[in-house]
Design a protein around this nucleic acid. Structure first.
Lengths: 224, 224
DNA sequence: TTGTGGTTCGAACGAACGTTCGACTCAGGA
DNA sequence: TCCTGAGTCGAACGTTCGTTCGAACCACAA
């Protein structure tokens, strides 16, 4: 057996990575329940029983995809937020980070958005935990916005979950050939949200935009 | 055979309605592919083969649920919009109508939101068609908003689909015991959207809110 | 009483499901 | 040369899937 891909260890095997990529595509196309292990076998070119050498069950396949995707997004976000204190800029970074990953890995994101309550037991708990951390980060940024006087006195839970709704719904309609890319999309959604939650106050769009983009460039340089 | 429930005829049989209700619940709980006809049989108390007396296939079950739900929402919306000309008020009506139905029929809405690309062939085409009409209505309202100078010059497609994202994502997080009801929720989301898309202009919230609520009351009286 | 037609269901169909098992290959160390 | 163990797979396991079929049931007209 290759080293097991436990949540806190890197995915060791190149072949496992390849299997996960193909699995994500198949899950995205047919849904978790609609996809069969045989579909994944066909798509990845690995035999039916060969798959079980790398992953112990269909559920674990989904779990690995979800955990790996969330971990990547969350750690990228934390890196991009470092050193940025302006709340509006931090929000823009969150939105940009989310949509950037979203559009670069549409299959994984579709699986994340749709297969929300398929997992059971320990798998479910672990994915829920990291998702909760991601949500918590967004909630903090909203609270900062409010303390800075750039947000109305409205239910933070609703505001933040509405923002996630805007972003996560994209997988149902975005066509790369027709619709704007992550840059434009995150600009529009950030502005909609910031204007949407502000109270008469004028959000300094340009300043926040400049700050966010500057930091994103730094982050991009840092990660290659 | 009972009268077939073709798209333009009312659902004739009480028992068919009952089967559709239970089916929606089972589909919502386990997903379309994850749910078996046997699950629906157990939930509805109708024998396995008994179900096929009323509905010719599992796909048609999903189709009937989706068509019926969309038809209801869309016709309710058209009725509520009659006689209201203020764009902001019309938008509030759309949001309120959507969320009101959403929270009153959480199972059906979850099925609508999740099982978007399961259907095939003619079923798929018909559901896509009515969905397109619903989307078109929202798009028109947004264009009215813009002509009235209450919306910035931004991509209407993105704006409207973001609004649907906010609304449709609710099924993943709303807990009736904890979260606000349709009234509050639609107020918050309407305001977020209106402030989000407006351009410096101040949306006359009170006026629009009053207008929308007044019309909704009239519509409520009309439908009982 | 004998049909008749709408309604119901137990039992089965073949296909597909997730998973397992044992055999095979093959590079590398003894 | 033989042995070992990671990697691979064909063939099968038992179960569940969507769907069908024919027999029953029942209220009512003839």
């Amino acid at each position: 057996m290759p080293r097991a891909a436990t949540p806190d260890s890197r995915i060791a095997s190149r072949k496992l990575e390849m299997i996960l990529r193909h699995s994500a595509r198949v899950f995205a196309e047919k849904g978790y329940e609609g996809a069969s292990i045989r579909d994944i076998s066909r798509a990845s070119g690995v035999s039916l029983s060969g798959l079980y050498y790398y992953v112990e069950s269909k559920q674990k396949l989904l779990y690995l995809i979800q955990i790996h995707t969330f971990n990547t997004i969350l750690s990228q976000l934390c890196r991009s937020l470092e050193g940025v204190s302006d709340p509006a800029a931090r929000l823009r970074i969150l939105v940009h980070n989310h949509l950037e990953y979203f559009l670069r890995h549409p299959m994984e994101m579709k699986v994340l958005a749709r297969e929300d309550d398929v997992l059971a037991g320990e798998y479910r708990r672990e994915v829920a935990e990291i998702k909760r951390r991601y949500y918590g980060t967004a909630l903090e940024i909203f609270e900062e916005l409010r303390r800075a006087g750039q947000a109305r006195q409205l239910n933070p839970r609703i505001a933040v979950l509405s923002l996630f709704g805007m972003m996560n719904w994209i997988h149902t309609w975005h066509r790369p050939q027709v619709d704007p890319q992550a840059e434009t999309l995150s600009d529009v959604m950030s502005q909609m949200f910031l204007h949407g939650v502000m109270n008469g106050h004028r959000v300094d769009s340009q300043k926040a935009s400049r700050a966010a983009r500057g930091t994103l460039k730094v982050a991009a340089r840092a990660t290659g």
